[in-house]
Design a protein around this nucleic acid. Structure first.
Lengths: 234, 234
DNA sequence: TGTATTTTTTTTGTCGACAAAGAAAGTGGA
DNA sequence: TCCACTTTCTTTGTCGACAAAAAAAATACA
């Protein structure tokens, strides 16, 4: 537990407390800094952030709403476990959203969207070069989120963001165990996707989105089978 | 505002407060008993439910997370407005989810699922017979939600439920303006869908799901001239 | 009368405190 | 040692209170 300077009793602006806690906690969960299943202590968080339990609780309620945290009534609050049994359902939804959002981006994107998308791609590319796993994961999600935003469908975008968040945890698992070199392929695939969107080639965007999604699914699936073999004797 | 018996200071069970407020408020919003844009007063709610503001607030945070309520920082909390501009995006997502969930139900349903689905269909049919608009809307949503549950994909089901909720508000709007007789057609379509699911006829389920969704979309969205909906092969 | 400035009112965000629900630890008897 | 029962301890759910922010009302001034 990182102890914050007690001296630096930072004067927060009124109303910023919940968002602060929410953002940080969400990132820590998605980056697996908080392990799935680990307990969450309201009073400890209150002490850590130097605020009362009320804003902490409201942040937790939000996270519960997103399925990142689970609560047993009157007892224990903990980081949600990754649902390995429901993984195929997740993959199914993820691939479909890859397709749909990429396709819609090809249809509805505007000039400024491409600038934004390319910026995220540059960040992703940089993260791959510097081998920064955490950054790779986060920027990859941001890249696809930007594409979804360009598709101009808030419902898909919201749903997709949620799926991508959950995916960050699984990818982190992957990159923690094996130091793989595959991501450079993702960079190329991203470039193809950008080209298809820019050309407003809906069919190509659909195809590439699907292929890209299945790529990632395959990566994670490979990890799982290895994990199962490892764990089966325990 | 319905005033509850002040005598009946009901002894709630510890921990039930938030859920109580959340469920009731959600229903009131979706049934348009609380008009879009209308203000929400925490202290009034606290008085109404006979509890302090803390559980009220946590229920509101949940509703904000689902987009049913909006808050301006430090000022005003109100029921979300229905986004007419983003309607085509909504329809797009709704029809796709109709397809996907019906299709998956045909693939993965178990015997007990059909019992559940038929029960909801019976309720819907009864609501149509008795011309109970509110019940028609709610039971229709429950019917499709049951189908989604039978599809065994929690991600789709969750997303679909959210869309159906938002749809309840729009349908309410529709049935408030026009006293139409169309719903009997929906009853028949539901029966066809059930038959396709039971027969595990994925193609038929997909087709019927799509047609049913577009039916409803057409009902609500006559005003919308733009119909750039997705039409992709799954 | 119209506008700028101060005061009051309303509503939110946060706090510290306390009691209920379980869990864990302690106690006694066979 | 094992088990049933009590007692402490931990953590949650709820409460009432208070101060900050913004809006509304009141006031001053031209």
């Amino acid at each position: 537990m990182a102890i914050p300077d007690p001296d630096q009793a930072i004067e927060r602006k009124r109303g910023s407390g919940v968002k602060l806690v929410y953002d940080l906690l969400r990132d820590e969960i998605l980056d697996l800094k908080l392990a799935p299943g680990s307990a969450i202590d309201e009073v400890a968080l209150a002490a850590r952030f130097g605020m009362s339990r009320t804003p902490i609780r409201e942040a937790l309620v939000r996270l519960v709403g997103e399925g990142l945290i689970e609560t047993l009534p009157n007892r224990s609050t903990m980081v949600s476990n990754i649902d390995f049994l429901g993984m195929h359902a997740y993959f199914d939804a993820l691939v479909l959203m890859y397709r749909v959002t990429t396709r819609l981006a090809a249809q509805h994107h505007r000039a400024e969207d491409l600038i934004d998308i390319r910026a995220h791609q540059a960040e992703f590319s940089a993260a791959v070069r510097t081998q920064d796993a955490l950054a790779m994961i986060a920027t990859n999600a941001a890249f696809h989120s930007a594409i979804a935003a360009a598709g101009r469908n808030a419902y898909y975008a919201g749903f997709f963001d949620r799926l991508l968040g959950e995916g960050r945890r699984m990818l982190r698992l992957y990159y923690q165990s094996y130091d793989d070199r595959l991501p450079s392929r993702f960079v190329d695939e991203h470039e193809e996707i950008i080209a298809a969107i820019e050309a407003r080639d809906v069919a190509a965007a659909d195809r590439l989105g699907k292929a890209h999604g299945e790529q990632i699914v395959e990566q994670i699936g490979r990890l799982l089978t290895r994990h199962e073999r490892l764990d089966i004797d325990l």
